[in-house]
Amino acid sequence: MSKQNRHSLLATAPSHILWTVEHNGIRIFNRQSDRHYVLEYPAAAVWDLLIRKRSIAQLIPILRAIQQVSAGEAVALVQQCLKDWHQQGLIEIEEPDGESVDHHPVQ
């Protein structure tokens, strides 16, 4: 299966990524690197919705409503989050068969 086939890709949180809800956002702790990240709103909302197993299709209208933005802007927000988190090692992009496609930066 081609890695360029966008419909075949999954964003996943690896098991060494832990998180908790804080007063000002979501604290994410990478147990492998001992590094902390604090996701502030609205990135925290995106993380929270993904954790709640919302699909991207379900996520966009919610973000549009809470952020008062267009569909295109909501998509861009999600893209930016995925890109940042992938680069920071907070999520992995993988094919459904489990093959990781790490080291391919998200555009």
Binding site: R6, L9, A11, T12, A13, S15, T20, R27, I51, I93
Partner: peptide, 19 residues
């Protein structure tokens, strides 16, 4: 307080994610 909850979200429809 720190939890792991896995998710695996299809990222269909996102602009080109791989180069």
């Amino acid at each position: 307080r720190l939890r792991h909850r896995s998710f695996a979200v299809p990222i269909d429809g996102m602009a080109p994610l791989l180069v």
